[in-house]
């Protein structure tokens, strides 16, 4: 069972306090979008064996949504960051690259 650090309230809590919210940084396609873009927005989700950018909510805690980057294969966590951004912070991307260089993840 995962141990998750909430970047909003600072709790390091077990997975049962949190709710998973699927892939992060999906761009909403609204009225006026093409069928292809809209279908992709609704249905296309990554399911990597390796590094995954995800949304989580501290459902039983502070109630806040946030992002977590982890390996679905080894469950290594590369970092968490708040929900109100549209791309991951550089230091987390650097950590992912370092883990790739060391062969820990694909």
């Amino acid at each position: 069972m995962l141990l998750i650090d909430c970047p909003c309230c600072g709790v390091s809590g077990e997975e049962t306090e949190f709710a998973a919210g699927g892939e992060a940084h999906i761009v909403r396609a609204g009225p006026g979008s093409s069928d292809a873009d809209f279908a992709s927005y609704l249905f296309d989700r990554k399911n990597p064996r390796g590094v995954h950018f995800e949304r989580w909510r501290h459902a039983f805690g502070c109630g806040k949504w946030f992002h977590m980057v982890r390996s679905t294969q080894t469950l290594e966590v590369f970092g968490v960051y708040k929900a109100d951004v549209t791309s991951p912070p550089q230091d987390i991307l650097d950590r992912v690259e370092a883990a790739r260089a060391e062969g820990r993840v694909k």
């Binding site: 469950l75 290594e76 966590v77 883990a99």
Partner: peptide, 8 residues
């Protein structure tokens, strides 16, 4: 190859 935790 030990079992690894959240910080590897």
């Amino acid at each position: 190859n030990p079992p690894r935790g959240k910080d590897a």
